[in-house]
Design a protein around this nucleic acid. Structure first.
Lengths: 335, 335
DNA sequence: CTGTTAGCGCCTTCAG
DNA sequence: CTGAAGGCGCTAACAG
């Protein structure tokens, strides 16, 4: 692999000149530039990203920290991040944090100028003590899918989302509406809790009560299996509709209902949250939140921050939207 | 940020000594080591990954190149890669290639010693000319989910998978079996084509014919929508079972059948491919292929390669497995 | 406009 | 066992 010195020598100029053409400096005559360019091309020379980074002081790398990288939604957000980062000429390091433990050390070690020029925290909530340090002397950081004072962030109004989903069902004429969700995250924000709050608020506003056993929500992964759906449908007064805290749950609930011979939406309406790609194919009504865009815009914010263009405390709320498909309908026999 | 020189000075030793304790060299007395360690801790010093990389000649970074990072299966493979890379102390750069164009240049530029120490090509098939260059003077590379002579790779027997799925249906007593798939990849291998071949082979072996219109497969994304499923079910002699080239298709087909009032598996058996997490929740029978493990093992192979421990032409076939759930059953009325 | 020279922070001989 | 010095490849500041 040729170095800048090789090029300089071969071109009969100094390394400084080569460096200048490399960096599009105007301080080079066109003739010299063309010649150097020709030599570079001829030698198939590529400057060392490493050496450049050391000299510059920072690498052309962004870090994306994802929590329990397991959901399709994380994937979509990542795609957004990758696209704008790539467009801007940055590599992106992907870091998956699983437990609270490695969150503390590994991430802080990652978010240093010699590792990356900026960091995206996807659905991750830093602990309060760390916020200062992150906001302080380290690399610029923005939170995608979450809100935290002191750190630039993109988020949605989860409570509103829960409310919108519930109100959609209420407007269709449902009165017995259940909620199914889980807080899948140990170290992140708790969207499910807020969506549940929105559900409760909507029910209350409509003068509807939430019968015991109508809320399936908890820290475990199994709240949402077929079994859990069955519990709901086994109730003396089973719901005619259910608000799921995620599309993936909605899919399972639908499956569970159909396995019992119920029809969706005729016998049971189900609404999800997220609007994953598959939701469209399966005709699942849902609350759409910007997945790809949250990643893309988060990356743009970060890029701005890195250039000192924005206050590091910008918080932007992303829009959400009710998408009505074929998994929700008026209840069969209005109760 | 303190440098190694700061530490050396504060500890009253030379930078060489500090460097040695940093790299666990045995050429340091315990006393000196402990002292230096104490100072390091006290100053909260972390060596610059950048400087180290430049000095060493290569960065502690692996590159994972994914094609059209859109499927949940890619995510699982990534998780495997991240886990072992992280375990081994490597960062991983994620690169998403969308078109054939950026495949050519960007990837080759990424796979250089100053960008990463090794590369994983996930479901990507390099063009033949590039293989030489990749296998030649560049960074070590392994292909995850694909096979190519000259490059270490992990793959499955897609044809066998197609055959297994089909034979499962045949053994259940089905005779009218359709195939639905799409080749979702422009620049990758073509698993669907091989799975289709396996399907055809199994049908032939069983003396079953494949009626016209029983194979829905093509380059477009919509071959598999409800519409396509409907075409199948609208045939004069509709299938009693269908082999889907992926779980995601199986989900949509199931949905389409149910929308017509058909029951799965009673009226129509459906089998998928991959065994995504959601497939278990939805009770989809499928051919399981190692997703997470392919990524993990691929990363291990790469790590080995980077240490020159393995021939760079190792090819390992990953096992696949028939998983029978509740989307396949004996046909209602044996035809 | 251009060549030269000092770093960037760390690793690695090479003497001691 | 340890300190000093050269080099990794590139950028930037300084004289010309």
């Amino acid at each position: 692999m040729p170095t800048i010195a090789d090029v300089a020598q071969r071109a009969g100029v100094g390394v400084g000149t080569v460096s200048r053409v490399l960096n599009d400096s105007p301080l080079v005559s066109d003739r010299t530039r063309d010649h150097v360019l020709a030599v570079i091309d001829e030698m198939n020379y590529r400057p060392s990203a490493l050496a450049r980074a050391l000299s510059i002081g920072t690498a052309g790398v962004l870090a994306a920290v994802v929590q329990r990288m397991t959901s399709p939604s994380a994937l979509q957000r990542l795609r957004g991040i990758l696209d704008v980062a790539s467009e801007a000429g940055f590599d992106v390091i992907l870091h998956n944090v699983k437990s609270v433990d490695d969150h503390k050390d590994q991430v802080r070690d990652l978010l240093r100028p010699d590792r990356c020029a900026g960091g995206l925290l996807v659905s991750i909530k830093p602990e309060d003590r760390e916020v200062e340090k992150l906001a302080g002397n380290e690399v610029p950081v923005v939170i995608v899918d979450g809100r935290l004072p002191g750190i630039a962030s993109l988020y949605i109004d989860d409570e509103l989302g829960g409310r919108m989903a519930t109100e959609h069902l209420i407007e269709l004429g449902h009165r017995r509406i259940a909620f199914v969700g889980e807080w899948e995250d140990v170290i992140g924000f708790r969207p499910t809790a807020k969506r549940l709050a929105g559900y409760r608020a909507a029910m209350a506003d409509a003068g509807l009560e939430v019968p015991e056993g109508y809320v399936k929500s908890g820290p475990h992964e199994h709240v949402v299996t077929l079994a859990s759906t069955n519990e709901l449908l086994d109730l003396d007064d089973p719901p005619t509709a259910v608000v799921a805290s995620a599309d993936s749950h909605a899919m399972v609930i639908t499956q569970g209902a159909r396995a019992r011979g119920l029809r969706v939406p005729d016998d049971l309406s189900v609404i999800g949250f997220d609007d994953l790609e598959i939701a469209e194919h399966l005709g699942i009504s849902t609350i759409r939140q910007p997945l790809y865009d949250s990643g893309a815009q988060g990356a743009r914010m970060l890029l701005d921050l890195m250039q000192g263009e924005t206050r590091s405390t910008d918080h932007v709320e992303m829009p959400i939207e009710l998408i009505v498909r074929s998994s929700t309908a008026v209840p069969r026999h209005s109760s």
